[in-house]
């Protein structure tokens, strides 16, 4: 099965790749702060600016173009979910939530294409972020693929043996599948804890 994630998307020889990783991280955090706090014209300006940066980066490198597209495609379901949640909220707040959502999507797509996972951890280490957070981030990264793989295999097995043409039944089975993945992840976490203990882990951060 093929995998891609930040390290595969990151295009280091690009224009952004030449900027110091700490500065890139700082720019990302700053932009995140701006789009979280800004409203009205500032938010509109920030959206245009980010779209401009994305277009510039896409025009600058073919690999970057593919990476940004893949990142955006991967993020779209999440974005759609956020927009759906926003639509449930009583406070609509005009177009701001949508602009904020769009900005966030572009920003994250740019971020993952600008910074590899190993680079991100280096930056966090250099910023003296407690190592427990970096270790946890590593665990999430490591097991993300495994659970995706398990989910894909289970989905394949489901398709192989499900003969009902009812869409509702299909969704019901998928919900059961997600439940199974959660159970498996619980079992896996116990096994991993045993593996860590066998190698000297005693709940102390070193």
């Amino acid at each position: 099965m093929s995998h891609y994630w930040t390290s595969d998307l990151a295009d280091r020889p690009s224009f952004f790749g030449r900027i110091d990783p700490r500065l890139r991280f700082f720019l990302f955090l700053s932009a995140l702060g701006v789009i979280s706090a800004a409203g009205g014209r500032l938010l509109f300006g920030a959206t245009l600016f980010l779209i401009g940066v994305m277009l510039f980066s896409v025009a600058a490198s073919a690999k970057f173009r593919r990476s940004v597209l893949r990142a955006l495609l991967a993020l779209l379901p999440f974005g759609a979910f956020v927009v759906f949640l926003m639509s449930l909220s009583r406070e609509t707040g005009g177009p701001s939530p949508l602009l904020r959502g769009l900005c966030s999507l572009i920003l994250i797509a740019l971020f993952v294409t600008m910074m590899g996972f190993d680079e991100l951890r280096e930056v966090l280490r250099s910023l003296r972020v407690p190592s427990i957070f970096i270790t946890l981030l590593g665990f999430v990264y490591r097991y993300f693929f495994l659970f995706r793989e398990e989910l894909e295999k289970m989905d394949m097995a489901l398709k192989n043996r499900s003969f009902s043409s009812s869409r509702l039944e299909g969704w019901r089975l998928r919900a059961l599948l997600i439940g199974q993945v959660l159970l498996r992840s619980y079992r896996r976490s116990e096994e991993v804890y045993r593996a860590m203990t066998a190698r000297g882990y005693d709940r102390k951060e070193r």
Partner: peptide, 28 residues
């Protein structure tokens, strides 16, 4: 005592090989 689990995905819990192999020495 070293233990090699049946499923290597249980045993290898760190993102990179170097970090994973270094986990034991770091703990000690």
């Amino acid at each position: 005592i070293g233990f090699v689990f049946q499923d290597p995905d249980t045993q290898l819990f760190m993102p990179t090989v170097g970090e994973d192999v270094a986990f034991g020495p770091q703990q000690f």
